[in-house]
């Protein structure tokens, strides 16, 4: 078993000064471990022996399951990031932040109107925003979170939809908000309202649906499905590929 270092923590069979350069010390839940310097926080946890249950989803920065807080020794600052996207720094203090289900209102999207009041009506607490900008600072996607909450207060659904579009709903904004706003749920509501009611819709899709309904492609489909494998292959390899990319 490992010997204790001067700080009395486990060093995995090597004294601190023998640790290869590419390994760095990190503190996980207060305990010191040496992990490869190129590790992400998630990789560091696993390297140290943790089997993650909660706190890992996509592992690629898309799902928001791995929101995490950390601190470096010389700073009072609490920092935020995605464990799967943040590379460890020497002497980082790590802890996993469990995703807690914040308030999500139940609504019938069919019955909502995309009015300027709707966001405030469903999530009235947005009006408690004190414009402290903590949400923006916490966002690992670097979105202008406070700006979209301000837009939500004004009832500008379109603006909320666009500003919040890259949100992965990790919950860090809500975890930090002194006004207890659940920003990411305001964002999804605005985006749904925008996509459903406000986006301009073209003519091609309804025309295509009508064609399908009227059976326009049925004969052609039947014909192609009746081809022998040989004929099908021929048709496939002869098909026109010379379309424009843009």
């Amino acid at each position: 078993m490992a010997k204790s270092s001067s700080r009395g923590t486990r060093t995995r069979k090597k004294k601190a000064d023998e640790v290869p350069k590419e390994m760095v010390p990190v503190y996980i839940m207060g305990k010191r471990y040496f992990v490869p310097a190129a590790s992400t926080i998630m990789g560091a946890l696993e390297y140290a022996g943790y089997q993650i249950k909660r706190g890992a989803g996509c592992r690629e920065g898309f799902c928001g399951a791995c929101a995490t807080v950390y601190r470096t020794p010389k700073s009072y600052k609490i920092q935020y990031g995605l464990a799967c996207q943040t590379v460890v720094e020497p002497d980082m203090y790590l802890a996993q932040l469990p995703f807690f289900p914040a308030l999500k209102k139940v609504y019938d999207i069919e019955k909502l109107k995309p009015s300027t009041e709707v966001l405030s009506a469903i999530y009235p607490e947005i009006n408690r925003c004190v414009a402290c900008n903590t949400c923006t600072k916490a966002c690992p996607q670097e979105l202008e979170v406070m700006d979209y909450i301000q837009a939500a207060i004004r009832g500008d659904i379109e603006k909320v939809a666009h500003l919040s579009f890259d949100c992965i709903m990790c919950g860090l904004c809500a975890a930090r908000c002194p006004a207890e706003i659940v920003h990411y749920n305001v964002g999804i509501l605005a985006r749904r309202l925008y996509g459903k009611y406000l986006a301009k819709l073209g003519e091609y899709l309804p025309a295509r649906l009508k064609e399908i309904e009227e059976g326009k492609f049925d004969e052609e489909m039947k014909e192609i499905m009746s081809l022998s494998r040989e004929k099908l292959e021929k048709r496939y390899y002869e098909r026109d590929l010379d379309f424009q990319i843009t």
Binding site: A161, R191, Y194, A199, K200, L201, G202, E203, L205
Partner: peptide, 16 residues
């Protein structure tokens, strides 16, 4: 999906 609220990319005429 559009009626659910999905924000598909569209051109200026609203076509996908």
């Amino acid at each position: 999906l559009q009626q659910l609220g999905v924000m598909w990319d569209r051109d200026e005429n609203g076509n996908l």
